[in-house]
C-alpha cells in the first residue's frame, strides 16, 4: 500500500516482521498510526485513551501476524484489530450520556487558514456530539471511511462484508448523522 517505489511495500514489511524484524513492524505502525489513533478515538469516543487503545491493539496485531492471510491488506487488518480493541475498551460503560461527555470533550485544533475550513468550532463540537448519538454500527463505518481513510474495498475487508454493503451502510450512517446534526 505504498505510494513511493523506494519504500518497502506493506507485503515486504509483513514478511520481514514475521521473520522477527521488529523495526519492520514499527515501520508498518508508523505508516498507519494516524489512522489507528483516529479510529481508536472515534470508536471509543475518548481521545485521551486512543493512544493506549492503539498501542494495545497493535501489539496484539504483531502477535497475530501469522493469521494475516493477505499481507497486502495489512492496513485494514490492523485497523480492524484497533477497532475491536476500542469496542472492548468501552465494555460495560457506554451509556449515552457518558458517550456524549466523551465526544463532547474533544479538543479540535483551528485550521491554519479558516477559509479552508467547512467547520467552525461550534460545528465541530456538534458533529462530535452527533457521532456520539448515532448507533455503534453507523459510527464504525464512518470511522473506517472518514477517520481512518480506508477505501470502500478496504472497509469491506475490515468489516468482513461486501463492498456494496459498505456503500449502502455509509449512506445510511451519513443520513442518520445528518438527522442528529439537525437536532441541535
Amino acid at each position: 500500500m505504498t505510494t513511493e517505489s523506494t519504500e518497502p511495500s506493506d507485503t515486504d514489511l509483513v514478511t520481514r516482521a514475521r521473520a522477527g524484524d521488529d523495526a519492520a513492524f514499527g515501520a508498518l505502525v508508523g505508516r498507519y498510526q494516524t489512522a489507528a489513533l483516529r479510529l481508536a478515538a472515534v470508536i471509543s469516543g475518548s481521545t485521551d485513551d486512543a493512544a493506549d487503545i492503539a498501542q494495545e491493539a497493535l501489539v496484539k496485531a504483531h502477535r497475530s501476524l501469522a493469521k494475516l492471510t493477505d499481507p497486502a491488506m495489512v492496513r485494514p487488518w490492523m485497523l480492524r484489530i484497533v477497532a475491536n480493541e476500542a469496542k472492548n475498551h468501552l465494555r460495560g460503560r457506554d451509556r449515552r450520556h457518558q458517550r456524549e461527555l466523551r465526544y463532547g470533550s474533544w479538543v479540535v485544533a483551528a485550521m491554519p487558514d479558516p477559509e479552508d475550513s467547512v467547520l467552525d468550532a461550534d460545528d465541530a463540537h456538534e458533529l462530535a456530539l452527533a457521532l456520539a448519538r448515532i448507533g455503534a454500527r453507523d459510527r464504525q463505518v464512518l470511522a473506517y471511511r472518514y477517520f481512518a481513510g480506508l477505501s470502500e474495498v478496504e472497509t469491506a475487508r475490515a468489516l468482513d462484508v461486501a463492498a456494496g454493503t459498505v456503500k449502502s451502510r455509509t449512506a445510511r450512517a451519513l443520513a442518520r448523522l445528518r438527522v442528529e446534526m439537525g437536532r441541535r
Binding site: R38, A50, A51, R178
Partner: peptide
C-alpha cells in the same frame, strides 16, 4: 453542511494526546 468533508476535517483536527510515541511504545513491547 457537507458531511463527508466535515468528517474528514474533524478527523484531521481532533487532538489526540500521546500519539507521537506510538511507534516506539509498540516496538518496545
Amino acid at each position: 453542511i457537507d458531511l463527508e468533508r466535515s468528517l474528514t476535517e474533524l478527523a484531521d483536527r481532533v487532538q489526540i494526546p500521546g500519539g507521537d510515541w506510538l511507534v516506539g511504545d509498540v516496538v518496545r513491547r
